[in-house]
């Protein structure tokens, strides 16, 4: 069972996760406009920048994050940004957006000139995340946990980060067992904050 405090923590993180998204006008451009390969690539890099900004806004709302040493905040974000972005992208792709949006997005990515060497593992990752059938609470918690990894390069006060991460790991373990009682695979994966490094 989740304690009252744990339920509050979950709703706080899920709200932050839902609130901070790619701006509407950028999403519209991605889905509607026709571009050549070079324009696709530029648009995707613009989107990546926006995504990082969205991620920082989410992170600022993780309870306790802003009480960390400022340079440690930077080190955590820098060390986790790519993993967290892939997690978020995987969620977008696995939600099966209406009207074939994921088809358009995938097509755009495949036609952006990015090497197949990167694209294939990326879509394989999205697929394997999709197969876990994670609920939004699990996505939000896993993203927060990924960002609050004490062993990122240049983090000075690892214990302060652990003190924030550990309660969230505990909550995720419980949520996982409650929501997937017959699927041990997800619970095993989420027990380790190194799941992202493995997937990478």
């Amino acid at each position: 069972e989740l304690s009252q405090d744990q339920q509050v923590l979950i709703s706080y993180i899920v709200d932050a996760h839902n609130k901070h998204r790619i701006p509407q006008d950028m999403a519209r451009k991605l889905l509607q406009e026709q571009f050549n390969a070079e324009e696709n690539f530029l648009l995707l890099t613009e989107m990546a920048t926006s995504h990082v900004q969205v991620l920082v806004e989410f992170t600022k709302n993780i309870p306790g994050f802003q009480s960390l040493d400022h340079e440690d905040q930077i080190a955590l974000l820098k060390g986790s940004a790519v993993e967290a972005m892939f997690l978020r992208s995987a969620q977008v792709f696995s939600k099966k957006l209406p009207n074939g949006h994921t088809v358009v997005l995938e097509d755009r990515i495949r036609r952006s000139g990015i090497s197949e060497e990167f694209i294939t593992p990326m879509f394989n990752f999205y697929k394997s995340i999709g197969e876990l059938q994670m609920m939004q609470e699990e996505h939000a918690l896993l993203t927060a946990i990924t960002i609050l990894s004490p062993d990122r390069p240049y983090v000075k006060d690892q214990q302060a980060v652990e003190r924030l991460q550990e309660p969230m790991l505990e909550v995720l373990r419980k949520v996982c067992k409650l929501q997937h009682p017959t699927n041990p695979a997800l619970c095993t994966a989420s027990r380790s904050s190194r799941v992202m490094a493995h997937e990478r």
Binding site: T45, V52, V56, Q73, I74, K78, A81
Partner: peptide
């Protein structure tokens, strides 16, 4: 690619956001 985007710059600016307000 992440370093080419000036990842740290983007992060620093975004973190400073509230302080400027």
């Amino acid at each position: 690619p992440a370093s080419n985007l000036g990842l740290e710059d983007i992060i620093r600016k975004a973190l400073m956001g509230n302080m400027e307000e």
